[in-house]
Design a protein around this nucleic acid. Structure first.
Lengths: 101, 101
DNA sequence: ACCATAGGCAAGTCCACGCTTGCCTATCAA
DNA sequence: TTGATAGGCAAGCGTGGACTTGCCTATGGT
């Protein structure tokens, strides 16, 4: 299953916080995310730790990155999350697939 | 976070298969789920293993159980899954909350 | 040229978690 | 009561993964 990487990525609380931060502000660099986790969430984690988390999130397709000079900007991509609600649809069944008509 | 249990529950591939089986047929017993995993998915797992998985799914609110005599039936509850798409809404924002109008 | 910044790679540690094994309880049928 | 079925509890093993530490590359400023 390709879903393995998606659910594994969501399995860690620190990675979920990173997604939260990317919702608030798109296109952050690694250092920017580091300092945000440290400031707002009192998260004592090394830069490498965050870097590894971002790699997992990228493998899951939840984060996309673009390089510019010596900076690397990270953007959130929520599209893979749809696979979750599609796999186990609500019993009502009306909102299984809602696309813009 | 109470979300910890939800995402932890979804993190294991065997547990996701159990949810799949409960979508197909609601109200299965432990032994029924065991044999289904073994037959359809060639899953070599002990009864205790499945039992522990069901406990995790129940803690996450994804599975509800009811006892009747010596049987314990398990039902799927997809409601907690909504918290995922609500936490990281799609950028379009039109489908953040879709309720039956 | 130099140094600081932004990031990557690799090895090593440590703990949570998936799974098994063994034994125990409860309900139903003969 | 005896036996079979459905399930629970607890201890133990082994592996994956989160995190750190140390060193390396590349870009930009002065």
């Amino acid at each position: 299953m390709a879903d393995d990487e998606l659910f594994k990525a969501l399995g860690d609380p620190t990675r979920r916080l990173i997604l939260d931060e990317l919702v608030e502000k798109s296109g952050q660099t690694l250092f920017e995310i580091c300092s945000r986790l440290s400031m707002k969430h009192r998260l004592g984690i090394s830069r490498q730790g965050v870097s590894q988390h971002l790699a997992v999130l990228e493998a899951a397709g939840l984060v996309e990155s673009r390089r510019e000079g010596r900076y690397k900007f990270h953007d959130l991509n929520t599209a893979p999350l749809r696979r979750i609600t599609e796999r186990w649809p609500a019993p009502g069944g009306s909102e299984a697939k809602e696309n813009t008509p």
